[in-house]
């Protein structure tokens, strides 16, 4: 089993890449690999509740984050520094996450077999 990191450092809205990127992460999990999702930088905003892209007729892909446990994706990391920078607290996020410092995340990242970002 390999450890695969999927890093989201931009909004999931506004383009189809976010959706196609999550499809990749789900697929990796379906192949029984260890999947870690990491939200850093501007990407932490992708997790906030009450996003309503439907008004723009954009597909809302936030709800699928709630499906991650079905596919045994239980490691969702957010970078503490980015949360601070964007003034977010965990209660404002759609799903429960592990907030870790940049340094602690980097230690894990160094051990990954493959890293994906988009």
């Amino acid at each position: 089993m390999k450890t695969l990191f999927f890093i989201i450092n931009k909004s999931l809205q506004g383009n189809v890449c976010g959706q196609e990127f999550l499809d990749m992460a789900l697929m990796a999990a379906a192949f029984d690999q260890k999947v870690v999702l990491l939200f850093e930088g501007e990407g932490v905003n992708a997790l906030v509740k009450n996003q309503c892209p439907d008004g723009l007729q954009l597909k809302n892909i936030v709800p699928v984050l709630n499906a991650l446990p079905i596919y045994d994706i239980n490691d969702v990391l957010v970078e503490e520094e980015s949360m601070t920078m964007w003034g977010l607290v965990e209660e404002e996020l759609e799903i429960s996450v592990h907030a870790l410092s940049r340094r602690a995340i980097k230690d894990q990242l160094n051990l990954a077999d493959h890293v994906f970002s988009f």
Partner: peptide
Amino acid sequence: GLGLLMEAVIESDRHITFG
């Protein structure tokens, strides 16, 4: 489908993305 991407990633020593 994406399954072939995953299979390649699992098989390979390196996976490099060009965007």
